[in-house]
Design a protein around this nucleic acid. Structure first.
Lengths: 253, 253
DNA sequence: GAGTGGTCTAGACCACAGC
DNA sequence: CTGTGGTCTAGACCACTCT
């Protein structure tokens, strides 16, 4: 009949758009270039703006686009490889890492963290807030929970809070001898405070890295670090130097 | 004045909804329970369905809800801890893993994979498709790229494709002696074929684990595995047995 | 102020599961 | 068949950045 093989797999418009735009990014755009605005793009493809936005959201999730309110949509650079390997990091306070402590307070940890610490759900622990920067970019925000038992020699004379306090706790934690750690990675969405540090809107996709630091057979500390999922690629082992990408190489136009 | 401190931080409706629904999930629902349908929920909260859906999408992304077309929205169980640690896996063909080979063909790998393999971008390699199941659930789909040089003794008499061929290649790869591996994890969206294996729609969020297998100082094989981001928590080290969750413990109703 | 992306609305129709 | 979530539309207004 007249219909060759229609009606099979009616691909969603936004998915088709994603593919078309993705190919256009490969062949017709270079990193940093500004795309036409959403209203123009939607009109050009003959779809509603909401549909066009669905496609852009996909591409942003995949780290291929960057969108900033009031500015525009640009072609994103390849994702940064961020090393989170066990062997490289000497512990939560190793001297050469790119973490910067912001604050340290005493607070009751979330129930899930308390469970990992094996402590009372209502007991206060040292709670350190840090951010990690790589190449001038803030890529992660972390909350590090350290029970008092893990830093027995902490001087009570030091400042009760602030970056100086954080450094004291980290130093003592290092001194107590971290023997090992285990990690897990999962997808999450940025809470309001994390989003602020990461310069994203609340709800932005993040990779949540939960680390348990072990000392003397016990859990000495627990860290919950949120990495920007759009711009980061977490590396384990020595693959950090190699460029790994899901997409085919971009042809220069 | 009359205004106490209004106009500050007008939280988006969908974000507020996410929080309200999240708390409701903690206190009023148990795993597997069916939520009211989207139209009812939207009406109940006095918002448009699209706005309500934005909140549900967030919660689904965080692994707290499961939505199935034609069925409804249910409360998701805690994420499965899936071990992807270096020490545990003896290589891509270890006997006790839960991977199931589906097929094996000769194909030209994506440019990014060819770069990792250090081979010609146009050279064909053995391309094995596998899926990983845990507790009856298919949690990952993988493409494993093996250059011919890594399996020199592969019998040309075996079937040229299919699961049997895949097992032959895996066996030979094991025999060649894998010495190490390095990995990276990043966020991606499921391609059409992966989505089918994972029982998701195209574009569903996935954690892409790229592994480089090393033998004799060279890259012997490259694997690109996509894990369901909504249901999986990737674990490294021996944290697999511990329940790690970003959310506070659910109170039984 | 002009222009951008972000949020929100109130509808419509479609694809799919289960009866 | 009914009911569900998935897609799509054509608007509106808001928050933000830059000039």
């Amino acid at each position: 009949m007249g219909t060759t093989q229609l009606e099979t797999v009616p691909e969603p418009k936004y998915w088709h758009l994603r593919n078309v735009l993705g190919e256009a990014l490969d062949s017709e755009f270079h990193v940093g270039e500004i795309l036409p605005n959403e209203r123009d793009l939607a009109a050009r493809f003959g779809v509603a703006r909401a549909t066009l936005r669905q496609a852009l959201e996909q591409l942003e999730l995949e780290g291929r686009l960057q969108r900033r309110r009031g500015v525009g949509t640009t072609v994103a650079p390849p994702r940064l490889g961020v090393d989170v390997s066990t062997t490289h990091a000497g512990g939560p306070g190793a001297s050469d890492d790119a973490w910067q402590p912001l604050d340290c307070t005493a607070a009751v940890p979330p129930a899930a963290v308390a469970r990992l610490l094996g402590a009372d759900a209502s007991a206060e622990v040292h709670t350190i807030r840090r951010v990690r920067s790589t190449q001038g970019q803030c890529v992660a925000a972390e909350l590090l929970y350290v029970p008092d038992a893990s830093v027995p020699d902490l001087s009570a004379i030091d400042a009760p809070s602030g970056p100086a306090r954080a450094r004291s706790v980290l130093r003592e934690l290092q001194r107590s001898g971290i023997e090992g750690q285990d990690r897990s990675v999962e997808l999450g969405s940025a809470r309001a405070d994390d989003a602020k540090e990461l310069d994203r809107l609340p709800g932005a996709p993040v990779l949540v890295v939960t680390t348990r630091y072990l000392a003397a057979g016990r859990t000495a500390a627990v860290s919950v670090a949120t990495y920007r999922a759009d711009t980061c690629r977490l590396t384990f082992g020595d693959a950090g130097e190699v460029e790994i990408s899901e997409e085919p190489a971009r042809a220069a136009s």
